[in-house]
Every structure is written in structure tokens, then in C-alpha cells.
Amino acid sequence: MRRLTVSLFWRIYLLNAVVLVVATISLVFGPVSVSTQPVFAEIIVLVIGLAALLALDGFLFRIGLAPLRRLSRAMTSVDLLRPVSRPVAAGGGDVGEVIRTFNAMIDRLESERGRSAARALSAQESERRRIAQELHDEIGQTLTAVLLDLKRVSDHAPRQVASELREVQETTRSSLDEIRRIAHRLRPGVLTELGVRSALRVLASDTAERAALQVDYTCDPDLPELDAETELVVYRVAQEALTNITRHARAERVMVSLDRAPHRLELLVRDDGVGMAGADEGAGLQGMRERALLIGARLTLDTPPSGRGTDIRLDIPLASAHPAAADTRSVTQESP
């Protein structure tokens, strides 16, 4: 059986209304009355007065409890991955104190989630570097040795066997190239050595080659100098966005741009695929949102003006950025 729930407003209002109704009835029929036998006109006046009091009472209660309604709406919309504005603690008293306490609680939760996400992502990056190193040093060297052994054996084998061995060599070489690509995606050395501009250009080129997509990459020549953490977040968000596009979007063309706007830096990844209407956000998008929070950025998903595909936009505030020398590189990378 479903339990009947009554809002706080109606609980207080109905209790107050009962008091007023009982007081009015007592005034009409009790010993303290306007006249010994109340006349109809007096009852009408009292009823009208009671109705006016109830209306005024309800109006005042609505005003007094409005902050609690705003707090209730804020509670239902809280998402630590998508920070929203806090309810205003207007006035003093208990209601204002409840709102201030709620805001302080959300601040603590967001701060703790940010620290937890930073630790988790730092551990993830360390594990990526370790796996990439092992792929390069262990498996890569082992496959290289296998290739050399296959070549040595095929040089002394009969023609038919040598032909088969060469096919095995090509398969092994393809596997070695794929392992190197995986290691590069796990640990983009170009990001550390040349910065996010060049790293994004290489990422666009690799995606175009691997997925047979047309990938256009442009970079604002007047970008500020970014710290290592911000560059890593920009790169990983672009990487995850391109990965999602190649897996799910069924797109033919992708645009990646890194531009400077007043007081912010904007990364935009736009595709012309099937879009995300009605689709649930997966772990990839949640990971991008967590990375965005680490640097105080905002990640949004929209539909492009064309009405097809998806815009993944990362807005990064530049309050703490330092101007850098102009980088005149602006590249358009397309698949052959």
C-alpha cells in the first residue's frame, strides 16, 4: 500500500488552519460571542475574516518556505560530475542555516571527489606508463627477436617453406606495429616532448589512418602556455572522444580544434555521425567529466548546427594560464 506523503508546507499550513478554524467556531458558539445568539451576518463576517486569514497565512508560509523549495530542487539536481550553482541562503534563521550547511556539504563532497579522482587518474596514468614500457621493452623486443629468427630460418629454407615463413614474418611485423601503436596511445611521448599541439596533430593523423576517417585538426596560433596536467587532460579528452567516435558514431568526418576565447581555452571534437540522442553516458564520458573537474573545466555535449552528430566541448578557464610565445602551427590532417 502506497504511503501518503504530505509536504512540509501543507503540514504547517493545515495545523495552523485547524487552529484558526477552531478559534473561529469557539468565537461563534462559545460563551465569548459577539451576541448571545449569533446572527447570520456576524457568521458571514467571521467566515470571510477566517478565509482572509487563511489566504494571508498561506501566502506568508509560501514566502517563508520558498528557500526550502529551492533547496529541494537543488538536492534533486546535484551531480558531482556536473557542478551547478548553489541555492542562495537568503535571510537568517534556521532555513538559511540549513541551506548554508547543505552548500558546505556539497563543497566538501566535490573537494573530496576531486582529490579521489586525482589519485585514481594519477594511478591510472602510472599504470598506463608501466604497461606501455612493458609492451615496448618485453613484448616488442621478443617479437623483434622472433622476426630476426624467422628471417634467418627462411633464408635457408626451401622455396615453398620460405614463402610460408615470409607470411608469418608479415603477420608478426603487423603485430609488432600494433603493439607499438598501443604503447604510443598508452604513453604519448610526443605530449611530453613537444606539447599538446603536436600531440593532438599526431593523434588526429593516427585516428584518420587507423579508422579510415577524415579528421581535420586546427590549432589557434595564439595559445597560452599550459601546465602539464592541463595538457594531459586536453589530450586524454580528445583521445577518448575520438575513440568513442570510431567505435559508435559511424561518422565519415571529424573535426578537432583547439582555440582560444576570452578567458578560456576550448577543445572541440565534432563528428557527423548518428549522434547520442537517447543514449546513456558510458564510462568513457564519465571519465572525461572527471578529468575536466581536475582542472576546473566544463565538459558539454551538444548537437552541431547541422543537426547531425555530436559536439564534445571542453571549456578550460585561463585565469591561471601564462602567455606563451605565439605558435604558428595550424594543421589540417585528412585521411588519404
Rank of each mutant, 00 (worst) to 15 (best):
Thr5Arg: 15
Thr5Lys: 15
Val6Asn: 03
Val6Leu: 07
Leu8Thr: 06
Phe9Asn: 07
Phe9Gly: 05
Ile12Val: 09
Ile12His: 10
Leu15Ile: 05
Leu15Ala: 13
Leu15Ser: 13
Asn16Gly: 15
Ala23Asn: 03
Thr24Arg: 02
Thr24Asp: 02
Ser26Leu: 15
Phe29His: 13
Pro31Lys: 09
Val32Ile: 10
Ser33Asp: 12
Val34Ala: 12
Ser35Met: 03
Ile43Gly: 00
Ile43Ala: 02
Ile43Arg: 07
Ile44Lys: 11
Ile44Leu: 13
Gly49Val: 03
Ala52Ile: 14
Leu54Tyr: 14
Phe61Ile: 10
Ile63Lys: 10
Gly64Asp: 05
Arg70Ala: 11
Thr76Cys: 09
Val78Trp: 00
Val78Thr: 09
Val78Glu: 15
Val78His: 03
Val84Phe: 00
Arg86Glu: 13
Arg86Cys: 07
Gly92Ile: 05
Gly92Met: 08
Gly96Ala: 07
Arg100Val: 01
Thr101Tyr: 00
Glu112Gln: 14
Glu112Ile: 04
Gly114Tyr: 09
Arg115Thr: 04
Arg119Asn: 08
Arg119Gln: 12
Leu121Met: 10
Leu121Val: 08
Ser126Trp: 10
Glu127Val: 08
Glu134Ile: 14
His136Tyr: 13
Glu138Arg: 15
Glu138His: 15
Ala145Leu: 07
Val146Glu: 14
Val146Trp: 14
Asp149Cys: 09
Lys151Pro: 03
Arg152Leu: 12
Ser154Phe: 15
Asp155Tyr: 11
Asp155Lys: 04
Arg159Val: 11
Ser163Arg: 12
Glu164Val: 11
Arg166Val: 11
Arg166Glu: 12
Glu167Lys: 13
Thr171Pro: 04
Thr171Cys: 06
Ser175Asp: 07
Glu178Leu: 08
Glu178Tyr: 10
Ile179His: 02
Ile179Asn: 08
Ile179Pro: 00
Arg181Gln: 15
Ala183His: 02
Ala183Pro: 01
Arg187His: 12
Pro188Arg: 01
Gly189Gln: 12
Val196His: 06
Ser198Gln: 09
Ser198Val: 11
Arg201Glu: 14
Val202Ile: 08
Val202Pro: 00
Leu203Asp: 01
Asp206Val: 12
Thr207Val: 08
Thr207Gly: 04
Ala208Leu: 03
Cys219Met: 14
Pro221Asp: 06
Pro224His: 02
Glu225Ala: 07
Leu226Gln: 00
Leu226Ser: 01
Asp227Asn: 03
Ala228Arg: 06
Val233Glu: 01
Ala238His: 02
Ala238Cys: 13
Gln239Glu: 09
Gln239Trp: 03
Asn244Gln: 10
Asn244Ile: 02
Thr246Gln: 13
Arg247Ile: 08
His248Asp: 06
Ala251Ser: 14
Val256Ile: 07
Val256Ser: 06
Val256Tyr: 00
Ser257Asn: 05
Glu266Ala: 05
Leu267Ala: 08
Leu268His: 09
Val269Ile: 01
Ala277Tyr: 07
Asp280Lys: 12
Glu281Arg: 05
Leu285Tyr: 14
Leu285Asn: 04
Arg291Pro: 05
Ala292Arg: 01
Leu294Ser: 04
Ile295Gly: 02
Pro305His: 05
Gly307Asp: 06
Arg308Thr: 08
Gly309Thr: 03
Arg313Asn: 03
Leu314Ser: 05
Asp315Glu: 09
Ala319Gly: 05
Ser320Lys: 00
Ala321Lys: 04
Pro323Tyr: 04
Ala325Asp: 15
Ala326Cys: 12
Ala326Asn: 15
Asp327Ile: 02
Thr328Asp: 15
Arg329Ser: 15
Ser330Ala: 11
Gln333Thr: 15
Glu334Asp: 08
Pro336Leu: 10
